[in-house]
Nucleic acid binder design. Structure first.
Lengths: 200, 200, 200, 200
DNA sequence: CATGAATGAGCGTTCATTCAT
DNA sequence: AATGAATGAACGCTCATTCAT
């Protein structure tokens, strides 16, 4: 009768047990990504997402306890890619190569779906989502990379956060301006990242 | 973000001709800033802003043709401060001093009202507001500063945009984490900015 | 973005300051009463109530912070009548006359709008509304009446609650069966009430 | 309460012919009772009931054509207990003992599962369920008890209905206030019942 | 000009019910 | 028969915007 007073949980409501369900979940997340890319935050509403996914609104809520949970899932999916890249980065021979690898991954990902990446960065600052986004794993990896490039740094965690901010700031801004030249952008991001590490 | 289908004009409906009107406009913008700081985007709605400004919702719409126009006005006001600082930066003796001055200004502004600065950056990415925000003036000034520090740079406009992105990225991220140490943050931002310029 | 997590307050959002507003509030409450009578709880939804009141859904929420608040207001309005009658009851010469007066009032009110009275009794048991309904005043009056009829009773508050339960139980049941004979019903209610007091 | 436009039949879809089916039906009804007790009407939805019963939602609809049918079945089950008690009541020696026995049963049942009893009374007033609940048998028994206690009463059916209303009104009200003292409550209910019969 | 009551499109979400597997 | 994924009508509620006073 009255709408629930307790805040909606963010974690997925149920693990899909059938193949069909898994497909549905995937299609919803992908629809969310597409909506964000084509219509921006304005069009980012659950009904539209369900429609785009070719799924009923009820199904959306079968797998996501609320809109925020879906947003988180989308962010997680995109973060995961970066996370995998970061893991690969650590496998590089030198520290320098590690960071370069990481930057390359970030830039590539950004230029692939610029709108999506930018809007997700924006969503990430939504306080309702705070703490729900698994950043610990990614952060640890970046810290590890930082420690390899600049082993003598006093506060590698701060440097890691700063590097992430620099890379995101630069790529988002480039994406906003519609930049396409991957090489050039990558060069500039490297300049900022290595420049920072050299002087901090 | 905007609810109506037909796009609302963004430019102020009327230039205030009387002192009282000017005050009203100012109070509304300040109310918008305060709401953004205290309640975040969640609380950023026209009715709340009017109430906080001690003005009727009707009056708000007398001076702003829509919510977006008000948002733009607020962004402009904050940008103006930075613009003034940038102008002062150019008056510095050396190019290095100019950029340092600019960075100091940016960091200070960010740490003074961290919420506001961050949320405005987010608003700025709203495509509905795009193009309505007067950035040309500020950009020109930054380009001028860049030309002084790095006269031989091939694309000073790109560098200017990058520097803005780096500074905003770093300060927003710092604000998000609740950093308070101005000196330390300024040091790191300088590292990134000068490092970038040295290597690009 | 997400629907509010904190439970909706029950008290009216604003005191109407203009005559028009007062009318609107009245019309909404009356519409709620009518809907409850004609369509039962099934039809008791905010959109239908607003429509019946000839008012937009927005106006309803301008004066009532939520559906529950409206329900409470409706219950209060109906309780008020009874409250007034109870006050008049105390003015009767004898204690017996007081209780008889009260019973007469209850029976009359019940038979006037049987559906409404019954459904409101049901609503009253809604835990979400508990404590929001001003019962203290009415209770005190009934206790006073009880003390006059049966001054030597050990627990007049319990007796008052019991009497209320008996009267409501009987009248609701009568209303449910479509009874119309006021005299007869009143006689039976008196039998139960006075019989209870004589033996408890 | 029912969502579909066309009215759903209320009678059970099929008589269970196998022992296992009978168990399933029983487990669903018991689950419904438990949900009503622990979560109140708020939590009383078919999916939750099926889950609590350890049965799929599909199975629930295999045995009950709709939610209302399940509610009716639950009410019937609870009524049945009372019905059995009423039958036992008639076996008492005197009429007075019969009624006292009945009241004792009612009070005990109410205080055993106060939530359940009260909420079922509320459900009973749902017009969609009206007429579907088998009350004739119970009524006849109460009438028989009444005839034994007060053989000269002109309208024993009315008295029976009134007594039921009085007892339910008092016990529900007591349950609502969390009363636990069985003896005391029983004493007051007797006072009301016998007082009523003596004066009506 | 100012006020604030009124509007209503649209959003997030629930839950009874169906039906392919 | 049993399962549970899927459906979608319907509800509670918000907030940008209008307009009579």
């Amino acid at each position: 009768m009255t709408q629930s007073a307790r805040p909606t949980p963010i974690r997925p409501r149920k693990r899909p047990r059938q193949a069909r369900a898994e497909e549905t979940v995937e299609s919803i997340i992908e629809a969310a990504a597409q909506i964000l890319e084509t219509d921006g935050i304005e069009g980012f509403n659950t009904n539209a997402i369900a429609r785009r996914a070719g799924v009923s609104i009820g199904s959306l809520y079968q797998y996501f306890p609320g809109k925020d949970a879906l947003t988180v899932a989308l962010i997680q999916r995109e973060t995961q890619r970066f996370h995998d890249d970061a893991a690969a980065a650590l496998a590089q021979r030198s520290g320098k190569a590690s960071l370069e690898y990481l930057i390359g991954a970030a830039v590539r990902q950004q230029l692939q779906r610029p709108m999506l990446a930018r809007l997700l960065d924006v969503q990430e600052s939504n306080p309702a989502l705070r703490g729900e986004i698994e950043k610990a794993g990614l952060n640890a990896l970046i810290v590890a990379v930082v420690k390899r490039v600049a082993p003598r740094l006093e506060h590698p965690e701060v440097a890691a956060a700063d590097l992430l901010a620099i890379v995101q700031g630069l790529t988002d801004s480039a994406g906003e301006r519609g930049e396409q030249d991957l090489e050039n952008l990558e060069h500039r991001v490297r300049a900022a990242a290595f420049g920072y590490l050299a002087r901090v």
